[in-house]
Computed example of a mutant assay.
Amino acid sequence: MVGNLLLRGMVAGLIAGILVFAFARFFGEPLVDAAIAFEEATSQAAGAAAEPEIVSRATQAGPGLFTGVIAYSVAVGGLFALVFAFVQGRFSSLSARGTSAVIAAAAFVAIDIVPAIKYPANPPAVGNSDTISVRTELFFLMIVVSVASMVAAIALARRLTSNYGAWNAAIIAGVLFIVFIGLVEYLLPPVNEVPENFSAMLLWRFRTTTIAMHMILWSVLGLGFGALAERRLGVRTGFRSAYR
């Protein structure tokens, strides 16, 4: 059963990856080209020598982008299916589609939205190469804290449900999650390495496009995998006992 769900998760990830690639190719890559043009113009104005192009932009924006997005999406789809298999029948009384949608929404918030509030994505020409390791560590630290906090909030909501009801328990846990994340993001050091003359509109469009790409990924996984899993699980009974 788990292997079948894993396969369906990877299929859903493949579909999501194709859609994300199409979106990134037509909406994201022009923004990357604009940022690179700004970077090159700034370097020329400063008299710096042009860096050799190891991989052409055509390869980066085509086969390279496609390979990276598909590999990532399929891997995330497989992990998504494993989380679904662990949750459904143990911690959730929702239908397969409902559980899938809830997991996808929670993952989108914890993995993408929360970290992006503190450390949003930046296009080329934004960021100091000397601080890339520090910035990467801070970003992944924010993801770990966010995911752990989301799991803790869900566990707290389940524990409070018997005393306060599902709705009130969810509100209490959600408020505590927001307060804790707000405190963590306040305490973590900020990163501000945007050049003074860099286009604010270009920066905004790049960041919102990045968020939209992740939204497509999690939406397709949540809805697509839910439909695939429900078709598979609909022919069986006793799903809860199958994992005991």
Rank of each mutant, 00 (worst) to 15 (best):
I171H: 05
L188Y: 14
A96D: 11
V83H: 03
S219D: 05
G234H: 10
V184Q: 15
S95I: 10
S92H: 03
R97H: 02
A96G: 00
S162V: 11
F23I: 04
L176Y: 01
G3M: 06
V235F: 10
L6V: 09
R240F: 14
E193V: 03
V55L: 07
S43Q: 04
E230W: 00
V109W: 02
I172S: 04
E137L: 03
P115F: 14
G64H: 04
E185I: 07
F198K: 03
A106T: 14
A169W: 05
A81C: 02
I18V: 15
S149L: 14
L6T: 15
L228V: 14
A153Y: 00
R244I: 05
F21Y: 08
G174R: 07
Y243D: 11
G165S: 06
F198M: 06
Y243Q: 13
A166P: 05
Y243E: 13
A58Q: 14
A75V: 02
Q60C: 01
L176I: 06
S133T: 02
I36T: 11
M142Y: 07
G64T: 01
G89Y: 00
E29M: 05
A50T: 11
T210P: 06
E185W: 06
A35E: 03
M201P: 01
A12H: 08
N197A: 13
P30Q: 14
F198T: 08
N4C: 06
L217T: 11
I54P: 01
A107N: 13
G174S: 06
F239K: 01
F27N: 05
R135V: 13
L221E: 07
F206V: 02
S133I: 00
E40R: 09
V55I: 09
P63M: 02
L188T: 15
A85T: 14
D130R: 00
W204T: 14
V69A: 04
P124R: 00
L138A: 05
I171L: 08
N168Y: 04
F177T: 03
F239M: 05
M10L: 14
T237G: 10
N168D: 08
A41E: 15
F239T: 12
A107T: 11
V76Y: 14
A110Y: 05
I70E: 00
F140R: 05
I111C: 08
E53H: 13
A48E: 15
E185F: 08
M142K: 03
T161F: 04
V126K: 07
S241R: 10
S129L: 11
P115D: 15
L233I: 11
I36M: 13
F177Q: 07
M1I: 07
D112M: 04
P189L: 12
E196V: 07
I154Y: 07
R205V: 06
L7C: 09
A16T: 01
A110M: 04
A34E: 12
R8G: 07
A104R: 00
V102L: 10
S199Y: 03
I15P: 01
I18Y: 03
L176P: 01
L233T: 10
P195H: 02
R90E: 13
Y119Q: 10
T136Q: 06
G89N: 00
A229N: 08
V87L: 11
